[in-house]
Design a protein around this nucleic acid. Sequence first.
DNA 1: CTGAAAGCGCTTACAG
DNA 2: CTGAAAGCGCTTACAG
Lengths: 339, 339
Amino acid sequence: MRVVTILDVAREAGVSITTVSRVLNHPDEVDPNTAERVQGVIRRLNYVRNANASNLKQRHTGFAAVILRGRRNLFLTDLAEHIVSLGRGTRLQFLLEFIDERADEFLAARSLYLERKLSGIIFLGSNLLGREQELKRLDLPCVFATVDASGLNLNQVGSVSVDNYRAGWEAAEALYQLGHRRIAMLGYFGGEADATGRRLYGVRDCLLSHGLPFDEDLFVDCSFTLQRGWEAANVLIDRRKPFSAVIAMSDTVAMGAMKALHDRGIRVPEDVSVVGFDGVEQGRFCTPSLATMCQPAQEIARITLELLGEMRAGKPGRHVLLSGLWQPGGSVRAIATET
Amino acid sequence: MRVVTILDVAREAGVSITTVSRVLNHPDEVDPNTAERVQGVIRRLNYVRNANASNLKQRHTGFAAVILRGRRNLFLTDLAEHIVSLGRGTRLQFLLEFIDERADEFLAARSLYLERKLSGIIFLGSNLLGREQELKRLDLPCVFATVDASGLNLNQVGSVSVDNYRAGWEAAEALYQLGHRRIAMLGYFGGEADATGRRLYGVRDCLLSHGLPFDEDLFVDCSFTLQRGWEAANVLIDRRKPFSAVIAMSDTVAMGAMKALHDRGIRVPEDVSVVGFDGVEQGRFCTPSLATMCQPAQEIARITLELLGEMRAGKPGRHVLLSGLWQPGGSVRAIATET
DNA sequence: CTGAAAGCGCTTACAG
DNA sequence: CTGAAAGCGCTTACAG
C-alpha cells in the first residue's frame, strides 16, 4: 500500500510542505484560498498524517492511558467508551487498560508510563486512600474520573465526580420520604477517599440525621459484580434482620441483589424496595426497572478530557463536582411508615 | 525532566549510536563485552527508547487495533476486554476503537493504520459482505473475531467464530423440540457473510426442515441494543400474529424484548419463550434467567491472539470454527405442540 | 564487530 | 502569507 505523505500533498497542491503542515496545525496562519485548495488535495488523496513523525517533532507520544479498575463494572466500561470515543477527535490516542477491581492501579500506571512515555493518565474507579506518594512519583497529568481527588492538592492531578456523599444522602432521603426506616446497604466501605465509601457515609449520615442508628447487620460488604451483588443479598437475607429497602452502591450490585431477592421469593418492590447507583442503561430494562442515582457519564467523560487538556497545557489541575440525578423506577415504592 | 536519548547512552558508553541501536535490536551482532557495557549505561541512565522515533523508521510498531463495532454490545465489550487483558503479556499493545454499529469499520481501520502504522487489526463484530477489496488494500494481518472469514481466502486474514449457522439451527431445534411452531426472530439479516445473518439462516433452515414456512411477519429487523430489542418486540406484538417463542440474535436484544413483553402484559415463559445468543453474564441475572446459545468468549480471545501472532510471523491466516454451547434458562418452557 | 551517513515524515523558527 | 532548512530520535544499508 503506497502511503501518501505530506510531500505528495504539497506537490499536488503546488505549495511547500510547510504550508501543508500549517493548514493542518495552524489554519488561521494560511491564506484562506490556499488552505482550501490544500484541504481539497488532502481529501482527494486520502492523506492521513503520520502520528509517529508528528509526535517525534512535538516531543510527546500522543498517548494517554485509561486505567479501568473493575472489569465487570458496567458504568466504568461505559465511561471508558465515552472517553475513547470523544478522544478520537483530538490528537490523543487512548490506551485502555483493564485491571482487577482490587489490583494496584498505580503500579499499572507506572509501568505503562515507562513503557509508553504517556502524556497523561486517566483513572477510572480508583481508590486514593494513602496513595499520595505513588501519585507524586508519577509526575505527569492525571485525571481521576468518578473520584474526588481535591484532598490531595497536587498540581498534576485533576478530578471529576459526582458529589458522592451528597448523592448517597439524597438516595437515602428519597427512601426515607417514602416511609422506609430499615434500609440495608450493599457496597464497599473504601473510606473517605473512595467514591463508594463516600456514598455509604452519605447514606449513613442521612439515616443518623433522622435518628436512625447505623445497623451493622444491615450492611454487607461486596465488590461490584452481578455475582457479588447476588451473594451479598443472600448473606443479607440469611441474617434474618427485617429490612424494607436496599441501597446498593452500584447498579450492577443492585441488579444482582434483585435477582437474589427474586430467587428467595421476596418481591420487588412489594416486599422490598431496591435502589442502585450509576444509571446504566441495563437498569432501565430490568423488571422492575431500577430506581437509581445517576452519574452523568457523558459529562464526566467530556470534563475528564477537558481537565487533561488543561494540565497538558501547563495549567494546574481542577476538581469538578457534579450533582447526581435521581432516576425513579419501578423497584421502589412508598410504604406505611415503619415504627 | 531531561529526556535521555540514544546519543546520551552512546557518549556515556564511548560507542556510536549505531552500536547502541544494535544492542537494542540485534544484540547478537555486537561484541558481547561492548553489549554488556552499553546495557549497563542504559540501565544506569534509565534510558527508554523513544517509540515514535523508532516506529517512524521501523516496519512494525507493536500496536494492534481492536475495532469494536457496536458500542452497546455487551458480548463484544466483554470480548474486547479479554483480548486487551490477554495481550498484556505479549509485546503487542492494543488500541481499542469503538465505532458505531453500522459505521464502516474498514474506513476506521485504514485511517488508524495510516496514523499509527499498526502491525495488525482485530475486528470485532464486523460484516464482511462485499468488502474484499477494502480488506485487500489494508495489507496487514487482520483477524475477525466472531465472524467466519474463510470465504475470502486472503493470506493476511484469519478468523475465529462459532459456527453461527449451526448454532442458529440448534437454538431453533431446541425450541422445536419443546413444542414451539410459531417462532419469531429479532435480528439483523446481514447476509451470508455476517455472523448474525448466518444465525438467522440457520434458524430459518431448521424451521423449513420441519416443514414450517418462514413467515416474514414474525421477523423484525433490529440492531443490537436494549432499546432496539425493546422496540422490535413492540413492533412484533403490534403485528398481532400469534407466536409462542422469540429467538433474538443477541442477548442484548433478547433482554430488551423480555422487557417489552413484560410491559405489554405478556408473561415469559408462560405466554412466550425467549432465547438469546451470546451468553453474557447479565442474561443469567435476568428474571427469568435467559436461555441462550453461548459463544465462548475466553477461547475466542485466546485464539484471536494466536492467529494474529501466526500471521505476524509470516504464516497464512487460519479460520477456526467453534461450537456454540446451549445454556438453558427460565425464559423457555415446553408447550403442548401447536398445530 | 563498528561507525558515518542517509533518511523515516513531520513541525517550526527564521527569513523573505 | 509563504518557503528553505534544520532537526526531532531512531534504524539500517553500506563501507571499513
